[in-house]
Nucleic acid binder design. Structure first.
Lengths: 161, 161
DNA sequence: TAGTCGGACGCAAGAATCTTTCGTGTGGGC
DNA sequence: GCCCACACGAAAGATTCTTGCGTCCGACTA
């Protein structure tokens, strides 16, 4: 967990490499090298540098929730009562600590938090709401959107170059 | 791209392996084997089987958007006018085809679509709204939520076992 | 201009990992 | 009781990752 976050400068080689790794990080360095006109060791050094700088945050397998019994994806907008720093931080920590909460954003607008939740059943979701929202005095209101189709899901970032 | 989607049965070994790969798919099979009490080839066979079945959908590097100049994450709820199958499909295809759209869900509730968008600047977002929402006759209304903090971001699925 | 230094490269060797093959053991069905 | 399908582990082979080394290019300095 050594996040230097040195904010290094990326050239077009780095961006091309990222573009490949974003889609398939099992691509051999030799193949990446051929794609960007660089040797395999050069590719490897650049990848390591970007990992150390925190530009590459993780290397993960994407699992299809439906095939492991987690069939329901839900969006929730949460509105809080008091927006003091302490209460917001507490909410952030609480939401982030729940395994079913896949994503949590603190936002501006008509809501304060947006959550992406993945659960096996509606019953499980209901239990979660009771614990997370009704059991939290600072939650004023929340709105639920049940996903009928995960049209596009990814963390891929559109890169220049 | 061979998605058999045979819906194979997963035992607790598979789930443990998925749990590891979800967090770090660069973990050597030997290490995974030690963690789940299996030999490296057995782990490898199970991983390949899950990839072929589509349970493991992809292996990707997670890139920090902020460090590649994509500093703004935005949520958008989109409400359409007509919800015929053709128009919905057209919208799905259009949203999914935009690189800046990281995620797109078709949902029930007060909105029809929820999008997660990552852009470098507000100007870029404005241009995107003009093209994607104002330029689409079937979009009735859309609401924007700008993320101030990406509290938790991932695709990790909470697995039983 | 000449000299020095840092950084990144490619090549090649070594280390580690992945992948396949093969023989064995176990459980279900005939 | 026998056979077959399936998954396993061990070991060998193939591929990939990683490191060491010499070279090259650009920047900075005298």
């Amino acid at each position: 967990m050594s996040k230097s976050s040195s904010s290094i400068i990326l050239d077009s080689f780095d961006l091309s490499i990222l573009n490949i790794l974003q889609r398939d990080n099992m691509t051999p360095q030799r193949v990446i090298g051929e794609a960007v006109s660089l040797s395999a060791p050069a590719v490897q050094r650049r990848i390591r540098r970007m990992e150390e700088a925190g530009i590459i945050q993780a290397n993960v397998a994407v699992v299809d929730p439906a095939q492991v019994g987690q069939t329901i994806t839900i969006f929730v907008e949460v509105e809080v009562i008091s927006e003091t720093a302490e209460l917001i931080d507490a909410a952030k920590r609480e939401f982030a600590s729940v395994p079913e909460v896949q994503q949590c954003y603190y936002v501006t607008g008509e809501a304060d938090f947006v959550l992406v939740i993945v659960v096996p059943t509606m019953t499980a979701y209901e239990a979660l709401t009771r614990r997370l929202f009704f059991g939290n005095n600072n939650v004023k209101r929340f709105r639920t959107f049940v996903a009928m189709d995960r049209v596009k899901v990814g963390l891929t970032v559109s890169l220049p170059g």
